[in-house]
Design a protein around this nucleic acid. Structure first.
Lengths: 152, 152
DNA sequence: GTACAACATTTGTAGATACAAATATATAAA
DNA sequence: TTTATATATTTGTATCTACAAATGTTGTAC
């Protein structure tokens, strides 16, 4: 269904505005679906993202700033987000010995195991969410979004 | 820049997952930019959306459920959102005489004036945000998103 | 070395959100 | 007419988020 009908938006809305609304609405739907999956594992979307970033570090610990920079959805409050993950035993934090302003955050073994368990499920859910588009269409969509951002 | 580099995502990530992350990240950026504009008028994004929905009613009052159905980002708490707008004098609420379970919500004169003031600014901001894409590309992007959702 | 700016993170606080449970009204069945 | 069920909204609560201010650390100019 076209976005105008889905949200009953006026047909007179200019194309850029309509497109931006479309992106945001679609994003919302996708996020809701994904959040439902994560909820079964008692994780929020930002928590999951942090875990994945830490796994990507492959043993090299990450600072708070480093995590923030790479978050899809950068809350100003990465500290408390990490607190949550620590209380669940999924990550560890210690003060960086070289620069005591910094903090070194690492994913724990249980964190890695949890992600491992989630891997096939997230891939499957994402594949389902994107099932209406062909490979070519997905590529085009990616390119258009990259170009839209154009954060050269 | 490609999404992999922007968020330093693994190149091995499957295409559907990558695309969904791209949509969500792009959406986030757009929303942040737009929220900055609204903030000057002391409005949040959901508040603005509700105002626009009410204006679209053209005098016909809307129920809570009706608003929820059309929100880009449907918080479960439309009641308190509307409370906020009432306290700012931008909308009015009264109990529906025909069905007292329902509530009738309408935008006020000051609400309409505020939107009128915002109209050219939102159009301009959105045009800027989408400036990197041509008309054709915007159309393609819209179509792909509609197809992705495919909420037949 | 002391003073000052820059950096990295944490904390305080107000406001927003999600989810479940509660309230109140209307409709339908017995 | 009583009871049950569905509908529409509100409220309670815990959690999360945004933003600003505070804390502690490092680097640099004097």
């Amino acid at each position: 269904m076209e976005i105008e009908d889905t949200l009953k938006i006026s047909r007179e809305l200019d194309l850029p505005s309509k497109t931006l609304i479309n992106i945001q609405y679609t994003s919302r739907l996708l996020e809701e679906k994904f959040a439902a999956l994560l909820k079964e594992f008692d994780l929020s979307t930002p928590q999951f993202n942090v875990l994945r970033i830490l796994r990507g570090q492959k043993g090299k610990p990450a600072s708070l700033a480093c995590i923030q920079e790479r978050m899809v959805d950068r809350s100003s409050n990465t500290t408390r987000l990490v607190d949550k993950l620590i209380s669940k035993g999924l990550v560890e934090r210690r003060i960086c010995p070289a620069n005591r302003r910094k903090v070194e955050i690492e994913i724990t073994k249980p964190g890695l195991i949890l992600l491992k368990e989630l891997d096939p499920l997230t891939t499957k859910t994402n594949a389902e969410s994107a099932a209406n588009l062909t490979q070519d269409e997905l590529l085009t969509l990616n390119n258009l979004l990259d170009k839209l951002r154009n954060d050269e």
